[in-house]
Design a protein around this nucleic acid. Structure first.
Length: 430
RNA sequence: GUGAACGUAGCUCAGUUGGCAGAGCACUGGGUUGUGGCCCCAGCGGUCGCGGGUUCGAGUCCCGUCGUUCACCCCA
């Protein structure tokens, strides 16, 4: 026990009993994504490190201290994917998707890797569901992406979800704001915490995340991003809001909402769920009109989001949402005598070939033990074989829901099992 | 990276001022020569995270270390 190996820090096993709820969430997500016209893409779990350096931005926390980067045996610098947008953008460029009818709408469900300190809802490997739409700068697309995510949360039955919205401006107007903010921060440098002094130099917009009392006070009087937006950005933002209202979506304007990835332009948004505790962000994203060009592609705009599967599951559990019941066998086979084991094994094979889910004992349990397993397995019927049945060529078929028993030949028993299997599968799809 | 709390059976947890390692659940068998769920009985299962120290004696006290959890930070 002393040297027992465990899952690496910040990782976890997804156990059989946890699978149904997770698979249900993913199935609903894929249904919603498909309904909005998005198609699935899978990209490698690791990429050339330069993709993330250029795409996410070298000043971000993700790139500076959270990437799993290593040199492979060929001397290449490789990084485990920390987020989904840059890899999908890379695939878009690499496969010439800018020549397809635009926009190109893609979705993914993939593990992400970040070297973080684990806590509730935060892991070193976590799964994200996300969408990316390339090739249109229409504000309707921003609003659609946001509406799509809101629809997903609603169909999952999540409660207490709030949408926060901001515009980050574009490369025309944001530099002017950054300059004004940096200048304001520099004038009040003595009142800032050590970290915000660093942020002033690297990425002044991030100071809005600071929770230190003194910094918050100073930032309350800081220049506001909305006052610096250029006319096109302002118009875009107004149209996004109008389209949110067309979808009857509530949102909170938050001009301090700055996300941790440098590629965002114009729209940024984040859904927060108060059921989650400290890691309240359940999903977020925005527009990234310069990303594709930054990683070496044509100047193609885009917009998308990522949402954390573990945080959705956590919120669902705290909302009391139950997953679907795990599948049970239709038939459990019981050998009452040692001499019946071969016939039972043979019968299990035949049932399975006929498409019926059947299970049996493999550890030489007593008859009572086998019946106990049959009951626990959730099977509809126990097919019982002992010396009497072997001699007369029939099966004892016990209906485990009613306890009634009858003697049937193999053909009649198979018919019964097929009927029960059909019933079980229709119950599942409903 | 920083701080706090917690590490005892597969799981959830008791364990008094330091004095024989416990319970419930789960698992296996029996109670019924060939029959599940409920009940009863029995069994299986532990280097008390790991390493040092104090002590006649440490699960218990001290130090270190690793891990988990929560929070900061950041994000999904």
């Amino acid at each position: 026990m002393a040297d027992l190996l465990t899952a690496p820090k910040g990782t976890y096993d997804i156990l059989p009993e946890q699978q149904p709820l997770r698979r249900w969430v993913i199935a609903i997500a894929e249904d919603v994504f498909t309904r909005y016209g998005y198609r699935r893409i899978d990209t490698p779990m690791f990429e050339d490190t330069r993709l993330f350096l250029r795409g996410i931005g070298e000043a971000t926390d993700i790139v500076r201290k959270e990437m799993y980067t290593f040199t492979d045996l060929g001397g290449r610098s490789i990084t485990l994917r920390p987020e989904g947008t840059a890899p999908v953008a890379r695939a878009y460029v690499e496969h010439g998707m800018h020549t397809l009818p635009q926009p190109v709408k893609l979705y993914y469900h993939s593990p992400m890797f970040r070297y973080e300190s684990p806590q509730a809802g935060r892991y070193r490997q976590h799964y994200q569901l996300g969408v990316e739409a390339f090739g249109s700068s229409a504000p309707e697309l921003d609003a659609e992406v946001i509406g799509l995510l809101a629809t997903l949360y609603r169909e999952l039955g999540l409660r207490q979800v709030e949408l926060r919205l901001n515009s980050m401006g574009c490369k025309e107007c944001r530099p002017g704001y950054s300059k004004a903010l940096r200048s304001y921060l520099s004038q009040n440098f003595d009142g800032l915490c050590a970290e915000c002094r660093e942020r002033t130099r690297l990425n002044p917009l991030r100071t809005f995340d600071c929770k230190v009392e003194g910094c918050r006070g100073l930032l309350a009087d800081a220049p506001r991003l909305p006052d610096y937006l250029c006319a096109p950005c302002r118009g875009h933002h107004e149209r996004v809001k109008a389209c949110l209202e067309l979808q009857e979506l509530q949102y909170v304007d938050d001009h301090t909402l700055v996300r941790g990835l440098d590629y965002y332009t114009r729209t940024t948004f984040e859904f927060q769920c108060s059921l989650l505790g400290a890691q309240s962000g359940i999903g977020g994203g925005g527009r990234y009109d310069d990303l594709v060009a930054t990683i070496g592609g044509p100047p193609v705009p885009g917009v998308g989001f990522g949402t954390g599967v573990e945080r959705i599951l956590l919120a669902l559990e705290r909302s009391g949402v139950q997953g679907p019941r795990p599948a049970s066998p239709v038939v459990y086979l019981v050998a009452l005598a040692e001499s019946a084991r071969s016939a039972v094994f043979r019968l299990a094979h035949e049932l399975r070939q006929a498409g019926i889910c059947a299970d049996l004992d493999y550890v030489e349990r007593s008859p009572k033990g086998q019946m106990k397993q049959a009951g626990r397995s959730g099977a509809r019927y126990a097919f019982i074989l002992g010396e009497e049945e072997l001699a007369t060529g029939v099966l004892t078929v016990r209906d485990l829901t009613t306890g009634e028993e009858q003697r049937l030949d193999a053909a009649a028993a198979g018919k019964l099992a097929r009927a029960a299997a059909r019933q079980a599968s229709t119950a599942f799809t409903e």
